[in-house]
């Protein structure tokens, strides 16, 4: 696994997310309401829509297309039409910079 820089911590508001593309894949990087950082795959498992345009509510991300929801901390699908879990990825904050850990 390799750590990749995503963005400064302050670039993501609490209870929001951004899109991060790397190596031909898309990821979503979140901050929860308390400011903690999380990361998942960036496309909804239902219809491959980018989650970055969705809404973070508490521990959940809502897909902007069909309003399906995932727990972005565990990846679990929480609301139809999402039934397949999102893959989560490790993240850390180093000197104010968010990093995501991706398999090589």
């Amino acid at each position: 696994m390799t750590w990749h820089p995503v963005c400064p911590l302050d670039d993501i508001d609490p209870e929001d997310l951004i899109r991060f593309d790397h190596g031909g894949r898309s990821y979503a990087v979140y901050r929860d309401p308390k400011g903690a950082v999380f990361a998942t795959d960036g496309l909804c498992t239902h219809e491959q829509v980018h989650l970055c345009d969705g809404l973070v509510m508490g521990d959940e991300i809502e897909c902007p297309k069909h309003n399906g929801r995932f727990d972005y901390k565990t990846g679990a699908a929480r609301r139809a039409p999402c039934v397949t879990a999102l893959r989560t990825h490790p993240v850390r904050v180093v000197d104010g910079m968010i990093e995501i850990g991706l398999e090589d």
């Binding site: 219809e47 297309k65 069909h66 139809a80």
Partner: peptide, 10 residues
Amino acid sequence: WRWSHARHHT
């Protein structure tokens, strides 16, 4: 109809 309507939006 939940699924049908999801398809309508897709």
